[in-house]
Amino acid sequence: MKHPILSKWRILAILAAAVFFSQGGIPARSQNVAASDGYRAVFSDYYTPATSVPATPGPDGFIRRWTLLEPIAKSFSSNSMLTDNYLSETMAEEYFKDQFTIIPEDGSKVKYGKTNLVWHALDSKKYFVNLLRFAEGYGKEYFQQMYWAVTIIDCEEDLKDVRLSGGANSGAVWYLNGEEVLRLTNDRDLIVDDCMSKRVTLHKGRNILRGAVLNGQGMATFCLRFVDEQGKPVTAYTVSSIMPKKRR
């Protein structure tokens, strides 16, 4: 059961965000972040800055390097509203320019309405990506949000008949090389191998995996990996984010 919005926590979050912005960011290279020691500590429990050195999935195959966009507010009261139709309609909207083709650079911005949102390239310390802690860490509201994520997957050869497998709290839509391959509807929890795509091919060279996760109340997370026909993790690829030239 998801808890209703706890207003006192929202207030605390907003206050913390103010402190966050005023003290300098986490990670340090980000321009618009600041945090109390508490938020700094929590954030660092979950993330380290991505580097220009490509990462590899661990033995469990989970993709831990992601470039995450600061969240976009969405209005829905319950995760049970995250139906197929809702996700279709939601993903049909344009939130920022080139949202289905952009390969964001760490620290780059997109304009959503009048707001500039920043992309952050991060490595998750967990097998999953904690979006609530991400938003919290950058001083953003974390309930009723849409979280965009992009990662770059490089393969030395075609990896055929693999499946994108994951879980999310709660709804999510994932696209591989521009095609929707996986959709998680309704009120879900973070469960490994909860949903899988049909068989897909990771092509030799560069592949782009992007998606959006939506969550109403409570924890916001996702985990993704590729698995083979037997459900075993596929790890024969690297994962990277685009870094600014000065840090390459």
């Binding site: 499946r163 497998s165 191998d193 909860d194 949903c195 899988m196 795509s197 049909k198 026909e229 459900g231």
Partner: peptide, 18 residues
């Protein structure tokens, strides 16, 4: 059941709960 929420077709393995 290749995943908790995803059906598909696959080879039969009597030891595999899927």
């Amino acid at each position: 059941a290749v995943a908790d929420s995803t059906p598909s077709l696959g080879a039969f393995d009597p030891a595999n709960v899927n």
